[in-house]
Computed example of a mutant assay.
Amino acid sequence: MSGKGVEQASESEAPDEVPGEVPDALFNQSLEKGIAVLRAFSAQRRTMSLPEVAEATSITKSSAQRMIYTLEKLGYVRKHPRTKRYQLTPRVVQIGFNYLAADTLIDVANPFLSELTNVTGETTSLTEPDGAQMLYVARFVCMKFVPIHMPIGSRIPMYCTASGRAYLSALPDDEVRALLEANDRVAHTQYTVTDIGEIEALLGEARRRGYTSNREELFIGDMTIAAPVLDGERRPVASVHVVAPTSRWTLADAEQRLAPAVIDCARGISNSIRTLG
């Protein structure tokens, strides 16, 4: 894309602001828009035209054009020479990789996750909270069939997953309620629990047992057992979970045979990160 092809915004163009919102002198709206453009690309929007970028990010076409132009110059976006549609480049992965490389929790957890996979013979993962979701940051895959592929960077809701509920179970009640209300609590399958009262009851049980489970509430055939990872202040910072596909496990067997190992793994990681200060 050449500089001549970029439309210049008029001097009087109003910024994309929310009416009635108090301006923040330190907040950089251009950076916000640029990040919004990067986040707009997904499995559902692998490529986009300029009008589609503007629509997906709720910004003006001229703003979208400036963002796309800048991101293309920086190497994070490219335009297909034939279709003229934009897509992300591999350079975007560097941003996420830098977080993974700098996260000491992942370094601490990896040996424990590896051992958990060896002990259980099943796939294990570490997830960290991000808003009302859990983010996959580490994963050890077993040689057996796993019904759902969840690569690093995948996100899952807290309210209907074992890792999310494990994290929630270690939080104070008021924080739990706020996070649950922040979720739409969609019924992904016929087994999904969406009622806040029912979820809070499950969290109470998780606190007593030290772990929680999820049976096909997000994906059919998928079942997991999870426990929270706690820092030195006894605050949850992550969750460990093991995948127990319904093709190999009943819930009773998974809880009896896998839960103790998951709890031990989470405790081991928790104790290790406390020694790091």
Rank of each mutant, 00 (worst) to 15 (best):
Y211A: 03
T224D: 11
L180E: 00
N28A: 10
H241F: 14
A178L: 13
E72S: 13
P236E: 07
T275A: 12
V193R: 15
M158N: 04
P129Y: 00
G210M: 07
A40R: 01
T250N: 11
T127A: 07
D184N: 04
D173E: 14
T127C: 13
A187H: 13
G210L: 01
S63A: 10
S30I: 09
V193H: 10
A261F: 05
N271W: 12
T212W: 02
P157Y: 05
H149D: 15
S247T: 14
E233N: 13
T60Y: 04
C160D: 13
R274K: 14
V77Q: 08
P81A: 05
L126S: 09
V22C: 05
A54G: 03
I59E: 06
G164Y: 00
A9K: 12
A201D: 13
R85K: 10
M134E: 14
Q29M: 02
M67T: 07
V92Y: 06
M67C: 14
C265K: 04
S58D: 15
G75L: 00
E32F: 09
V242Q: 06
S49A: 09
S125A: 11
R235A: 08
E217G: 07
D264W: 03
S62N: 12
F27H: 13
S114G: 05
L135F: 12
L100Y: 06
K33E: 14
L203E: 01
V262Q: 02
D231I: 00
S270G: 14
R82G: 06
K73S: 12
S247M: 09
A206M: 05
E175F: 04
R208T: 13
E11R: 06
L113E: 02
A206P: 09
E255G: 07
E181Q: 10
A238R: 06
V243F: 02
T224V: 02
R91K: 14
V240D: 01
L71T: 02
Q8M: 01
G34D: 14
R267L: 11
M143F: 04
S154P: 12
I199L: 06
V77A: 03
P260G: 05
H149P: 08
Y136I: 11
Y159P: 06
P151Q: 00
P245K: 07
V176E: 06
T161Y: 11
A162K: 03
S154R: 02
G232S: 11
G75C: 01
Q29E: 08
L88H: 12
V186K: 11
Y86A: 02
T104D: 12
A132N: 13
E7Q: 12
R209I: 00
Y159F: 15
G232F: 06
M158K: 11
E181H: 13
I273Y: 02
P90G: 11
L230F: 09
E7W: 07
T123F: 03
T192L: 12
S10I: 09
I95S: 06
M143Y: 05
A178I: 11
T161V: 11
V77E: 00
S10T: 12
